[in-house]
């Protein structure tokens, strides 16, 4: 095979985003090799992506980058939903994992020329002194109070050092707003799933969303065009939390007290899946300016309200027919389809 196409490494292959991005890359004939790294087995069906199992902190990376000579790394595994793991595991995955990744990508003789990192607008926090629309160069006004925000800020620091030290690598950092869509489950989508949607009494914050397909499209957009820099990715407009609930055919229930909600939730920690960063969001909301990315030619397919609606439609269907059967990755089956001579393959 002539080695002319792109060679891409996707971190966090088994996460929602890693799987989606790998599937999209498989459709692109200019991408020759796709290597997916994760600690767990893939959760979506993949045709030509090579899955490599790694340990928690991705220490295998240096060897892997050297052996596969990838030119592009799509770093999609940063954990932004803190209900999914403990704060120590989160630090290990986000901070130590990224450190290992950057060390591998910046090693002498490394073939990596492009690095795209999926971060979150969580780095801006949510506070009463915030501007209504954060631009990429603005810093947060509220105290860093939660483990996930702290780890993402540390990751961004490492990344900016990496970009300074490696001017030959195109580094792009995408900060995604809260994601909603047909398939993804997030702390906010779980709240919208409840018969009565919890809210903080006396507050109706303005939220901003990005639709799940726009997330994948944005990652591929910056990769394809080789655009470097920091970009907010969020749909146009902001809408009140009560309106999000209304779009889902739900009503708001102001059960959370306006003062001391954090302490109350800490007491019920075992029973709720409401992380502290969502609480400050339900109080003050958050808005980001998305014009820097659109000025590079990116077009969204959904506004903020459109993303809520996309989720609401899928949720209505799910309530009637239930969840789609989950995909299970089987090594033997995968090996058969990829290597057996019995499988008839189209010549590419």
């Amino acid at each position: 095979m002539a080695g002319t196409g792109r060679r891409v490494l996707v971190t966090g292959l088994s996460t929602f985003w890693g799987g989606r991005v790998a599937q999209a890359l498989e459709q692109d004939p200019s991408v020759e090799v796709i290597v997916g790294l994760d600690t767990e087995e893939p959760t979506v069906e993949l045709e030509r992506t090579e899955y490599v199992k790694a340990d928690q902190s991705y220490s295998i990376l240096k060897r892997l980058v050297k052996a596969t000579r990838v030119d592009t790394i799509l770093h999609t595994f940063l954990v932004v939903d803190s209900t999914r793991s403990s704060s120590r595991a989160l630090h290990e995955l986000n901070v130590i994992g990224t450190m290992n990744l950057l060390a591998a990508a910046g090693a002498p003789g490394s073939s990596v020329r492009s690095l795209v990192v999926k971060s979150s607008t969580l780095v801006y926090g949510a506070g009463h002194r915030d501007p209504y629309w954060f631009r990429e160069d603005m810093s947060r006004t509220s105290r860093v109070g939660t483990a996930v925000e702290r780890s993402l800020l540390e990751v961004e620091d490492y990344l900016s050092d990496f970009a300074d030290d490696n001017p030959h690598v195109t580094v792009s950092l995408l900060r995604f707003a809260n994601v909603l869509g047909p398939d993804i489950r997030t702390p906010l989508s779980r709240l919208l799933d409840l018969p009565l949607v919890p809210a903080i009494a006396g507050f109706d914050p303005l939220l901003q969303f990005v639709e799940e397909n726009d997330v994948v499209r944005a990652i591929l957009h910056v990769m394809d065009r080789g655009i470097s820099g920091i970009f907010n990715v969020a749909g146009d407009g902001r809408l009140p939390w009560s309106e999000c609930a209304a779009l889902c055919g739900r009503r708001i229930l102001p059960v959370l007290p306006p003062f001391g909600a954090e302490r109350m939730l800490a007491a019920f920690d075992r029973f709720t899946e409401l992380p502290p960063e969502v609480l400050s969001l339900l109080r003050y909301g958050r808005g980001v300016d998305n014009t820097r990315l659109t000025s590079t030619g990116f077009r969204y397919t959904c506004t903020s309200a459109g993303a809520v609606d996309a989720y609401a439609e899928a949720a209505r269907l799910r309530r009637i027919v239930g969840d789609a059967p989950a995909y299970r990755w089987e090594r033997d089956v995968e090996t058969f389809f990829r290597t057996s001579s019995a499988v008839v393959r189209d010549e590419r």
Partner: peptide, 17 residues
């Protein structure tokens, strides 16, 4: 000029609240 995206809003609250 890209066609405006469908924006299924329920209220008339603008981006400033």
């Amino acid at each position: 000029e890209p066609a405006p995206l469908p924006d299924p809003r329920r209220s008339d609250v603008d981006g400033w609240g």
